[in-house]
Computed example of a mutant assay.
Amino acid sequence: MRDIKSVKEFDFENIALLKGDTPDDIKEKCLQSCKDYLAHNWIQQTVDTIQFKRLSGGLSNQMYFVAISKPSTTSHVPQEVVIRIYGNKQFNNLDNTDNERLTDVIIAVMIADINLGPKIYGIFESGQILHFYKHRQFRLNEQNDPKLSTQLFRQLAKLHALDVPIKRTNNWIFDYFDNFYEIGFRDFPINELIDEYNCQTLKTHDLKAEIEWLKSAIMRCKSPVVFTHIDFRGSNIMVTEPNDEILICDLEYSGYGYRGFDFGTIFVEWGRAFSDYNTFYTLPTDTVLEPLIKAYIEESVQIFGTKYSDNDNNSYNQILKEAKIFCLVAFMWIIMYCIRNDENDDGMPVNKQVMLGMAEINYKNYFNLKETLSQQNIL
């Protein structure tokens, strides 16, 4: 990525997301974890009798596939698993400075218990042992499948209904915007870079003023606080094969927040392929969004009863409004990530031209969407 000259050269379809270097002794460590937590015929295995490979994905973790080369047909323990090794979290890890993964473990166990997320076989200080699922990510083809898209939003309703024993704050998004803006404009000459790379939208529209306007729009839309994924996008949604069941993964940034945020995050990629990140965004029509939101409401009524539907704040029109406003928030989220992100997890500098290029594209889409919502009298 550091070698390319512009964001247009960045092909998301042909990249493998790998965080940091693979430790030399990781195979031995993963095998030992399987022996400790799975036991049975894993105890007899050596590094020569297992299959092992690093998996793509996990920007805050490293993921490894481990399997017994000659699996037992009678063993009661899994013969292939995924081992997740924790990395540093980029935000919302301030409550547990001595154990930033404490809330992640609580959440992971709870969603696994109701088959909403991956089954867990082991939890240790530096990671987890998870069930291995043959799966695909939730992308454009899955969006266009009515059965899968309906199932996805029923799963989202179940997630939002969870009562998780963690801190219940809802202003993290404001802190995120403020902190990332401060870091981005403090740590390097971003205004000079914006001029150098001719980022016209960033030059024309004051970012700080837009953040303040967006905060007020969030407050006005009165989205209720629920347990949210916070990174609810296709790459964090698994469609298992061959059964086409949906599991939600990578909840390490999850917490209490505005209900609309998860809707906005998934809807800004709805109707778009993974490679369409640098193309003009068009908000899905209400006829596309309506069955998805109504599936969410129907599942919520199944969980909470008619008291849910009796509340005007849970009406279709209210959730539709929230979803559209939080599409703006989702674009601003990406913009601020690009503005602030000046180095990789390994401490190497990123390609700032590419990052600002991505911020510029998303800022354009933000204002195009803002104009559309103004015309719809949403704002």
Rank of each mutant, 00 (worst) to 15 (best):
Q128S: 02
I129D: 01
I120C: 07
R139H: 13
H131Q: 10
F138G: 13
P118Y: 11
G127M: 02
F132C: 08
R136Q: 12
R101Y: 15
D104C: 13
I114C: 11
F124M: 05
E100V: 05
V105G: 03
G117R: 04
L130E: 09
R139G: 13
R136G: 09
D113E: 15
L140G: 06
G117Y: 07
I129F: 03
G117V: 13
G117E: 14
R101S: 15
K119I: 00
L116P: 11
I123C: 01
L102F: 10
K119Q: 09
A108R: 05
L130W: 08
N99V: 03
T103G: 06
I114K: 10
M110A: 15
R136F: 11
A112N: 14
G122V: 10
I114S: 02
F124W: 09
R136A: 02
F138M: 13
L102I: 11
F138L: 09
I114A: 04
G127D: 01
D104M: 03
M110W: 03
M110N: 14
I111F: 09
I107D: 08
N115C: 12
R101Q: 11
R101I: 07
G117W: 02
N99Q: 07
E125A: 00
E100P: 06
I123L: 05
I107L: 08
I120S: 05
N99F: 03
I120T: 09
I129N: 01
E142S: 06
Q128R: 07
E125R: 03
K134D: 14
G127W: 01
K119D: 14
I106S: 04
I111E: 13
F124D: 05
I111D: 07
N115E: 11
N141L: 03
L140H: 09
T103Q: 15
I129R: 00
L102K: 08
V109W: 06
N115T: 09
Y133S: 09
I129E: 01
R139E: 14
S126Q: 14
I111G: 06
F138K: 09
I120R: 10
P118G: 08
G117F: 03
Y133E: 09
E125H: 15
